[in-house]
């Protein structure tokens, strides 16, 4: 299984990528998580790398100590990042934001030949740029190749079931126009008792354990 998470700035790409990787790991699979954010290399999952590795995940990402001296514009794709798709087991790629972020995939060796690579666009309709069906359609069309859309609609601490379901509807409608499947709805673990296994549109719900708030830069 090879999945790349792309999408709008602050749409929840990293949170979904990290949770997906941990979920696959829990199922006894071998998983590599690759941090490929070269749009904003200083605002990534770097602070939780060690915690993730302790759980048994292979993490390809910069460590704080190694970035010393790179400076503000220090974004460098290492060899192990470029060749990440050749690794054994499942691979989850966390990609930088926007169109420029999704172009990072062009730099990976074998990305265009890999029949297993699925590119998933993460959408939160509480983000102003992707707040309506038309916005989502326009946004996803600009991103380049996409295989599925994931509804990650929330309002931070103020999230309620209604906003998640509203997101599910908007994303489902946009997906229909785009001719793409809906991968899932993602929601904080605390909504499990109320949401259940599927969202209002019948798509599976992936529950998230929030890890990115620990990335206090």
């Amino acid at each position: 299984m090879v999945e790349a998470y792309i999408g709008e700035y602050a749409s929840g790409k990293s949170e979904n990528a990290v949770n997906r990787a941990l979920d696959l790991l829990e199922r006894g699979r071998t998983v590599t998580l690759v941090d490929l954010d070269i749009v904003e290399p200083f605002y990534t999952l770097r602070p939780i790398k060690k915690e993730l590795e302790a759980k048994g995940l292979s993490v390809i990402a910069w460590e704080t100590g190694d970035t010393v001296g790179l400076g503000e514009a220090g974004n460098l794709l290492r060899g192990d990042m470029l060749w990440a798709l050749r690794r054994e087991g499942d691979i989850v790629l966390d990609i930088g934001y926007g169109v420029e972020g999704s172009k990072t995939l062009n730099l990976l060796h074998g990305a265009h030949q890999d029949p297993e690579l699925r590119i998933i666009a993460v959408i939160n309709i509480s983000r102003p740029m992707t707040s309506s069906v038309q916005d989502v359609v326009d946004y996803v069309r600009d991103l380049g190749p996409v295989h599925a859309i994931l509804n990650n609609t929330h309002l931070g601490e103020e999230t309620d079931e209604q906003i998640i379901q509203e997101g599910a509807k908007v994303v489902a409608e946009a997906a229909k126009i785009l001719g793409l499947p809906v991968e899932a709805t993602a929601a904080d673990e605390k909504f499990r008792p109320t949401l259940g296994e599927t969202d209002a549109m019948g798509h599976p719900v992936r529950y998230l354990h929030r890890l990115m708030p620990k990335t206090f830069w």
């Binding site: 509480s126 983000r127 102003p128 309002l155 931070g156």
Partner: peptide, 9 residues
């Protein structure tokens, strides 16, 4: 409108 954004946005 209630929105979820970064401070810059």
């Amino acid at each position: 409108k209630r929105m979820f954004v970064t401070g810059n946005e």
